[in-house]
Amino acid sequence: MTDRTSHDPDDANLTADRRSLVPSFEMSRRQAVLTTLATGFALATQPVSAETTITTDTSGLVAGEVQIPASDREIPAYRAMPATGGPFPVVLVVQEIFGVHEHIKDVCRRLAKEGYFALAPEMFVRQGDVSQLKTIDEIRPIVAKVPDAQVMSDLDAAVTFAAASGKANADKLAITGFCWGGRITWLYAAHNPKLKAGIAWYGRLAGEPSQTTPKHPVDVAADLKAPVLGLYGGADQGIPLDTVEAMRAACAKAGKTCEIVVFEGAPHAFHADYRPSYRAEPAKQGWARLLAWLKQHGVS
C-alpha cells in the first residue's frame, strides 16, 4: 500500500488519525445554518491565479443557486442551463475537496453553454463549511466524515430535482467530478443504473476501506453501470500509475466500457485553471474528450 497522504490535497481519507473520524449526522449550530454556497473561491485556494483563471459569463443562461430537497434537509446547489429551449440533458458536477466554490460554478456554466442542465450540489453541507477554512489540514477532517452512502443519496436527490424542474431530461444523465469528486464519479457509475456516462478527473482509485468509504473505484469496477472516461496526470504524486493500471485491468476483466487517458507530465488537478497545478493543453484536451464522451454515449 503506497502512502499518498503528503501528496494529494484532495484525498481527505488518508489522515494520520482516521480512527477518530466517524460519520456524524448531528449538526452543530454552525453546520445547521449552512444553507448557501460559497461566494468566490474557497479560502484554502488563495491566492487565485489571475493569468489562467477561466471565467464563463451567464449570457444566454439561467444560472444561480438552488435548493435541492434531500432525505433530511435541503441542500444548496449551483445550477446552470440554457435560458431557452429544453428539456436539456443532465450533467451532475461533483466538487473538489474545496466545496462548490467559483471554479465548480464556472464548470457548470461551461456545460450550460454546451446545452446541458448542469447541477453541482454541495456535498459537505452537513459536516461543515470548508470554503471558509484556510488550509488543507483544516479541511481534511471535515471531508473525512462525509459517508459515501450520504453522497450517493444526495446525488440521487439532485437527479430527482432536475427531473422535476421541467427543464431537464433525466433520461440523458451523466456525471463528472474533480479530485475528490473524481472518485465519487466512479462510485456513482456503480450506483445508479440510469446513468449514461461518467467522466472522472484524477479521482483516487484505490485505498483502504473505512466506515465512511467502505469501497473504492477499483473495488466496484465489476458493478459499473455506465461507461466511464478517466482523465489522469502522468506526474500526479497522489495517484500512482499502478493504481491507474489496476483500474484499467479491473474494468477489462469485468467487460466494462472504460477509457483511462493519462496525460504525460501533467500533475494532479491539471484542469483547475485557478491553481498553480493548471496545465492548459491537458485541460483543453480533457475537456474536448469529456464533450465527445457525452455525445458518444447519448448525453447530448
Rank of each mutant, 00 (worst) to 15 (best):
Ala272Thr: 08
Lys172Ala: 14
Thr160Ile: 14
Tyr202Asp: 02
Val48Pro: 03
Glu65Ala: 09
Thr257Ser: 14
Asp223Met: 09
Thr35Ala: 14
Asp219Phe: 03
Asp219Val: 04
Ala272Arg: 10
Ser59Glu: 15
Pro276Val: 10
Gln211Gly: 09
Val107Met: 10
His7Phe: 15
Arg140Trp: 12
Thr213Glu: 10
Ala288Gln: 13
Ala283Lys: 01
Lys134Ile: 04
Thr52Trp: 06
Thr84Val: 10
Phe161Glu: 07
Gly86Ser: 06
Arg289Gly: 06
Val33Cys: 12
Met1Thr: 13
Ile75Asp: 01
Phe161Cys: 04
Ile75Asn: 07
Ala38Glu: 06
Ala189Trp: 05
Pro217Lys: 10
Asp8Leu: 14
Phe25Thr: 15
Gln150Cys: 02
Glu65Gly: 00
Leu43Thr: 10
Ile199Leu: 11
Ala16Leu: 13
Ser210Ile: 08
Val143Trp: 10
Lys215Arg: 15
Val91Gln: 13
Gly265Thr: 01
Gln31Asn: 15
Thr84Cys: 00
Gln285Gly: 12
Val146Asn: 10
Thr15Gly: 10
Ala226Phe: 08
Ala222Thr: 12
Ala174Ser: 12
Cys251Ser: 15
Arg248Trp: 05
Ala226Met: 11
Pro193Cys: 02
Arg183Tyr: 09
Asp106Arg: 00
Asp236Lys: 03
Arg204Leu: 15
Asp154Gln: 13
Ser165Leu: 08
Ala288Lys: 13
Val218Ser: 02
Leu291Asn: 09
Ala118Gly: 08
